[in-house]
Computed example of a mutant assay.
Amino acid sequence: MTETNTRWDIFCTVVDNFGDIGVTWRLARQLVAEHSLTVRLWVDDLRAFERICPAIDIDAAQQYQQGVEVRHWPVEWVHTDAADVVIAAFACNLPNDYMDAMAARERPPLWMNLDYLSAEDWVVGCHGLPSVKYKSVQKIFFFPGFQPGTGGLLRERGLLEQRRRFQQDAAAQRQFLQGLGIERAPDAQLISLFAYENAGLDSWLDVLAAADTPTHLLVPEGRILGDVARWLEVETLTVGAIHQRQSLTVQVLPFVRQDQYDHLLWCCDFNAVRGEDSFVRAQWAGRPMLWHIYQQDEDIHQDKLDAFLALYTKGLSPAAAEAMNGLWRAWSAGQPIGEHWLAACKHWPELQENAQAWCLEQGLQADLATALVQFYLNWI
């Protein structure tokens, strides 16, 4: 049996709006496009899916999008045969009937829990280990990660070269931005802001507004809009709104397709992102960034944040590393970040070089889709 005649099922429950579906949709497309696999993507919330893939029919129980069979994951499960490879994304629970179907196969499928991304040291030791067992079917831990010995990161074939060419083509960038209604002033720095609600935002906007260098802040639809509106002292912000205060121009963008979001990140000088999918895509942009990590009970997320910062800032000078650590930790804690932003700006060329070097370093590892396929080939 080869990789090209196997069937893969990916199950996704949408927990945090777009992160879960964002990762699984990218993965499903890549498995089809680059590995010629037959992939079904089971999703319980097609409305959230529609935001990143407008072609989705939210009323269809079954449809095909970009070579992927998309199935609505119904409350009342209808029996279906189990695939050769079954991926439970982010520890979601599979339907009981489907688990029985896995156990009924003559040859049990490879059942993997595609876990959340983390830079913590223990991930390397747990990657590929057995988890729970259901009858004859053993579940395996599969961890994305930043270090050898993990599953790597989602990265499509040729992505970094595509990004490099785009960032060297001023005309292509200008055309893309104009397609979103963005007119960038020649001397303005471009920043994207995609984040959860954050009490520390006001101090950052205050500093950007008072700066000598103009800033054009691009804010896609999302949870941070309420905080931006309060700072601007307006009741609501809708797509297309443009407000200016001193040196700061704020523009609200529509929620865009994944490939458009990639290009937006590539255009910007600095990207503030959230969750997991946009976090990884910002790293592939090769530009300085700020991550709003998803908050977890008992501040468990803090360990994940510290572990990533230890890797990401390893190549920086002590002063630059201290500035980045202060900025990221304050932002994730909802604390004022204005002074931390000014401290980071003192090391801007070094932060730019570090972002590029980190991107290239991560690009040397096998991508997540390839790692999954290779794991299956080794397993059989």
Rank of each mutant, 00 (worst) to 15 (best):
I300P: 00
L41V: 03
S118D: 09
T236S: 12
P288A: 13
Q167H: 01
C345Y: 06
R163H: 13
G363C: 04
T238G: 10
L46M: 09
L264C: 12
A61P: 07
A282F: 00
M99G: 13
G200N: 02
D9C: 14
S192M: 03
V239L: 15
R26T: 05
Q352D: 07
V273E: 06
F11H: 07
A321I: 01
F141D: 05
F255P: 05
F141E: 12
L327F: 08
S203D: 08
D297I: 00
E353V: 14
E34W: 14
I52T: 14
A320W: 04
P349V: 08
L154H: 08
L311V: 05
D9S: 06
R157D: 00
L31A: 05
V68A: 06
D97W: 13
I52D: 03
E183I: 04
L94K: 08
A101G: 02
W358P: 04
I300G: 03
A285P: 07
D9N: 13
A33N: 14
V137I: 11
T6N: 10
F146R: 07
D227C: 14
A60V: 07
V123N: 00
G22V: 00
E76S: 13
L327I: 13
L154M: 09
P349Q: 11
E76Q: 09
D45E: 07
V75M: 14
R184E: 08
V219Y: 03
A101I: 14
R71S: 12
A61I: 04
D45N: 12
D297H: 02
A344Q: 09
L237I: 06
A319N: 03
V207W: 06
L114M: 04
D115G: 10
H243A: 11
